[in-house]
Write a protein that binds this DNA or RNA. Structure first.
Length: 276
DNA sequence: CTCGTTTCCTGTTCGC
DNA sequence: TGCGAACAGGAAACGA
């Protein structure tokens, strides 16, 4: 489940290795993975194009071409991008292969097939992918207590659900919402309209701090990334609460609890994150 | 605008 | 040991 830190890691690993390469051929094995345009058109339009650079927006990756056409992709739950030699063993569930001019291949695999690709021409409006609906990037200066209070402070739903709302803040998923709320000392199921300005202030500070921390500890070399099939950089040793149910709280030693908030499993410390 | 529900998918875990 | 059921979850689509 790549969230902002993992997507940023993938960008940092892949981008330097594909810049300036030409896409010689595109093979789509699962047409439904290409959301727009039709898969054959997707292949046709990309063949022969040169890769300029990559950017990230929330959990989306954008591969820019010299023509200013752009590939947009979302990895969703199990999507994975891997740059491999052409003769490298193919991962199960590989759905798209970009054959590149240095005889390497950029491969997209996705067990659960939730991940999607879009391709937009230069100046073509993106009304499909959802990028346009995203809220602010967590590292932008606009992420202030005032912004959070204005956009989320009147909502009745749980603060955790608000953090997961991509149209408010882009890039936070289930793992890092739990981590952020733990660091901020806020109970995940607490209604957003119950938070005080001090709570929003803590969140405004903790959100970029936690995300940049996890990007930092995520650092991985291209060699290790390929070696581990793009799977083993997931911060597991650094998570304080996510997946740590019934283990002791790293701050106070109390046993961590698990509840379901908005349909998502949520782990928290009943002492450090008291319900008010 | 906001809310809850359903859908998409397969690998893993769980209960009997 | 083996089977089916439940679970995991990002985000769109839907109805209210």
């Amino acid at each position: 489940m790549p969230e902002l830190p993992e997507v940023e890691t993938i960008k940092r690993v892949i981008e330097p290795q594909i810049q300036g390469l030409v896409i010689d051929k595109v093979t789509v094995k699962r047409p439904e993975v290409v959301a727009y345009p039709a898969a054959d058109e997707f292949c046709g339009l990309l063949t022969g194009q040169t890769i300029s650079h990559m950017t990230r927006r929330g959990k989306f990756l954008i591969i820019w071409l010299n023509s200013n056409d752009r590939i947009i992709l979302h990895l969703r739950m199990t999507g994975c991008l891997l740059l491999t030699p052409a003769d490298y063993p193919e991962e199960k569930h590989t759905h798209i292969i970009f054959s590149l001019s240095n005889s390497m291949e950029l491969r997209f695999s996705d067990t659960r097939r939730f991940g999607r690709f879009w391709l937009f021409r230069k100046d073509e409006a993106d009304t499909y992918s959802g990028v346009e609906k995203l809220g602010i990037e967590p590292f932008y200066a606009e992420l202030t207590a005032e912004y959070l209070n204005t956009h989320l402070g009147k909502r009745k739903k749980a603060v955790k659900e608000c953090l997961l709302d991509q149209s408010a803040i882009a890039g936070i998923g289930n793992i890092y919402s739990d981590e952020i709320l733990f660091t901020a000392g806020i109970y995940p199921a607490r209604p957003a309209n119950n938070l005080k300005i001090e709570d929003w202030e803590r969140l405004a500070a903790v959100i970029p701090e936690r995300l940049s921390y996890f990007i930092e500890v995520n650092r991985i070399t291209p060699e290790d990334y390929l070696e581990t099939k793009g799977q083993d950089y997931r911060n597991t040793p650094f998570l304080q609460v996510y997946g740590q149910e019934s283990k002791p709280c790293p701050k106070c030693g109390e046993t961590l609890c698990r509840i379901v908030v908005g349909g998502r499993g949520s782990v928290y410390c009943p002492v450090c994150q008291r319900d008010l």
